[in-house]
Amino acid sequence: MMPQREGSSEHSYCGAELAEALRTLSQEQRSGFILMQRLRPRRAPAVLVREGKVSLGPAVSASQSAPLMASDGL
């Protein structure tokens, strides 16, 4: 679960910033970026605990599965 935040990283843009970036970046600068569909994860109220402190609020769940695979390379 993660507290809902805008954008996925400090280097990412969405919304007005994204429109601005598309307008101002040169073709060369732009090719250093990738365009992604914005994910809107379902939220649910949660109790999150970090370093003994409790925070309440809507959170999203991320599920993970771990495929394990080995091959002989042939």
Partner: peptide, 19 residues
């Protein structure tokens, strides 16, 4: 390569997308 075998431990991350 002298070792043809490979091991992969992967983790696929998902979210439930609901606009």
């Amino acid at each position: 390569a002298t070792q043809p075998a490979r091991l992969a431990i992967l983790r696929s991350d998902y979210v439930l997308h609901q606009p």
